[in-house]
């Protein structure tokens, strides 16, 4: 009536085959990473030099450097961090500590997870309309401009572009618009990470503080937030490293691939490392591939330093909470 399936030993043998297949897949993933890093190291190390770090772009690969994109990356990422981190934490606080578990909150949550799936280049279109153009404000005319002279406590219009406190409306495609664009891109990541950090804080801690008669905000500010902060910082650092690697949305808002100065104020033109890498990689000449690889090494080094910082922060801050 019944025929036995393949003998148990044969089944055991085919079971080993699955193990081999899985281990092989893991090995391929590692091999891909290894060949990627190796390619970059082989192509790029020769071009790395102090001069490379401190020169501007050039039509000749031998003279080109990454000073402008390096400075640009720092500027936009600082702006991005200053905007995205407080906004992300604030939104997460509201959603986790204040919002009633209502339909509205469900919609907001779905919205945020949807945002995380929007391609970054599409954020570029929003940023172009909102920050670069102010939705058409004064389009076709010269932008409004003014600067603040702190020494005389005066707002000067039209502003002085040599001043650090020089602002235009609309912003145009300067570092401020760039930073805000990246903030849009990483905000959903920042919110989600902060929410998870807040959710991980045990309820009992909150209840203990409430039982002592603390107000809602006092509980959030003095109890929940400090407990969630190390995890939030890790999320923040991950968000900023994502911002450091973004090129597509910045390309949409400005696309400056050849910038021959470092930014001096929030309206300055800029480029960033990933854009510079894009520009050089896309050229047919081999020399440019080599300097692209060198720029990638710098980019990865910055990212690595950032992630080391994340690990350090996690360990430094988590100890007192656990013991």
């Amino acid at each position: 009536m019944t025929r036995p399936e393949a003998s148990p030993t044969a089944r055991t043998r085919s079971s080993h085959l699955v193990l081999v297949a899985c281990a092989l897949a893991a090995f391929i993933a590692v091999a891909a990473l290894a060949s990627l890093l190796l390619t970059i190291a082989v192509e790029g190390t020769g071009s790395l030099s102090w001069k490379f770090l401190t020169s501007f772009a050039s039509r000749k690969a031998a003279n080109a450097g990454i000073l402008a994109p390096l400075a640009g990356s720092v500027w936009v990422c600082v702006i991005c961090a200053l905007v995205a981190i407080p906004m992300g934490i604030g939104t997460a606080l509201y959603l986790e500590e204040y919002a009633k578990k209502s339909r509205l909150q469900g919609i907001i949550q779905l919205n945020i997870s949807n945002l995380a799936g929007v391609p970054s280049i599409v954020y570029g279109l929003l940023a172009l309309a909102a920050f670069v153009r102010f939705f058409g404000f004064r389009s076709g005319e010269k932008p409004l401009s003014f600067s603040i002279e702190w020494s005389e406590l005066r707002v000067l219009a039209p502003g002085n572009p040599d001043s650090f406190w020089f602002v235009q409306a609309p912003f145009g495609s300067g570092v401020l618009a760039g930073g805000l664009t990246l903030a849009l891109v990483v905000l959903p990541i920042m919110i989600t990470a902060s929410q998870e950090a807040l959710r991980a804080v045990p309820k009992s801690l909150r209840q203990a503080a409430e039982a002592l008669g603390s107000t809602h905000w006092q509980v959030a500010w003095r109890v929940t937030l400090p407990a969630a902060l190390p995890t939030m910082m890790t999320g923040a650092i991950l968000s900023i490293s994502r911002a450091l690697g973004e090129a597509a949305p910045l390309l949409v808002i400005g696309g400056f691939l050849m910038v021959l100065q470092t930014p001096t104020n929030l309206m300055s033109d800029f480029t960033v490392l990933p854009l510079q890498i894009y520009n050089w990689s896309g050229r047919p000449q081999e020399e440019f591939h080599r300097i692209a690889a060198a720029a990638i090494i710098v980019q990865l080094a910055v990212l690595l330093a950032f992630n080391a910082l994340a690990i350090f922060v996690r360990q430094a801050f988590q100890k007192p909470l656990q013991s």
Binding site: A29, V30, E246, I277, S281, A293
Partner: peptide, 23 residues
Amino acid sequence: LKSLLEILAGIPTVVYGFFALTF
């Protein structure tokens, strides 16, 4: 293995573009 995969996840996409062209 997990930290290696995390490195892979953290690499900017433009770098993969370079990798496609040169490797």
